[in-house]
Design a protein around this nucleic acid. Sequence first.
DNA 1: CGCGATTTTGAACACCGTTCAAGAGAAAAT
DNA 2: ATTTTCTCTTGAACGGTGTTCAAAATCGCG
Lengths: 195, 195
Amino acid sequence: MTNKTEDRRTLQRERLIETAEATIAQSGHAALKARDLAASVGVSLGGLYNLVGDLDELLLLVSARTLRRLDAALAAQTGEDPVESLVGAALAYCRFARDNLGLWRAVFEHHPDAVPDWHVETQLGLFRHLLEPLRRIAPHRSEDQRKLLARTWFSAVHGVVLLGLEEMLVAVPYDALEAQVSEMVRALCAGARQG
Amino acid sequence: MTNKTEDRRTLQRERLIETAEATIAQSGHAALKARDLAASVGVSLGGLYNLVGDLDELLLLVSARTLRRLDAALAAQTGEDPVESLVGAALAYCRFARDNLGLWRAVFEHHPDAVPDWHVETQLGLFRHLLEPLRRIAPHRSEDQRKLLARTWFSAVHGVVLLGLEEMLVAVPYDALEAQVSEMVRALCAGARQG
DNA sequence: CGCGATTTTGAACACCGTTCAAGAGAAAAT
DNA sequence: ATTTTCTCTTGAACGGTGTTCAAAATCGCG
């Protein structure tokens, strides 16, 4: 029955993704090894390629999961005051990156030969959480301009967290990073209101 | 003569670095292959390891060069008005990243087992170009606070350029990126003055 | 049970960075 | 000039990747 094997494969595929996720979370995406994964899932080496076309594809599947969780973390940060919503979202991003360092890095550091469209769109979809607060902060702008602004501010926070977490081990403590991010977002809001 | 061989090696080392630089500029740091480099420089495969301890070390040497050029590009952007200086520096960063995409990415995407101190410090040293304009924009703050601010703003621009250049191929044209960066820096300045 | 279809397997392949015994070459000594 | 000593260069070999595919094992069914 072609149905039974497909069901089993779906199950094994799930276990494979979970194992990969745990490995990346603990040791980074460079630690993903085909032979280790095969052994963990209980499949032969070649059997991996019945579950997944490629290690790149596996990494993409894990990244999709990570992006879903990140999306949820950002969605939980919509409040009353638009400025506080944006600050909250930025801080949520900080914490997510800190608590999921390996997985978060895998999302952005992994460059497959061909990034699928749905992955790009999921990544771009994160900006939408900033759009409603931005409507209240910059009501005079067009929606397209606000979309651009959302992308830019998101990228800015991303950059601060990226370099911040890399140096953190040797320089600045994490709390200072949160303070900097929060201050920057407030400054951006203030600047956008008057500008 | 131990002198003669060392001179020749220094020369070969220089050619090696230049070859590596050209390769990374054209095809990215993932395209660096020991065998290709050895053939290009005219050394046997094992001979590479007389010139350089490691491919990681070679990448670090190339990154050091890139950082020197980036530093020079930022240094050339000091003007009269502090805001315009910061905008100029940010735009210079944009253009440098665009015109040296592979090399620029190699600086930040390469994670050796042990990053030498001088490399970290060179990277951090880039912030100093923002410090003088910041003294005029935020004179009420302490120098330490301004250093933190410089690091944060630099990282913010870095993030916008990073995600901007990745999407550029499929989404937004480069000019829009410059516009976004310029606008963000102005907003940050405005926000920092009043905050 | 037997037999065709399907699925799993792991040895083999291509490629990678790195090493190191052996050979080539230069310098010193006779 | 010849031999000896020492240094430097070389590329085959090693251990490690991800991926493939002929062969073996398993399954479905008459």
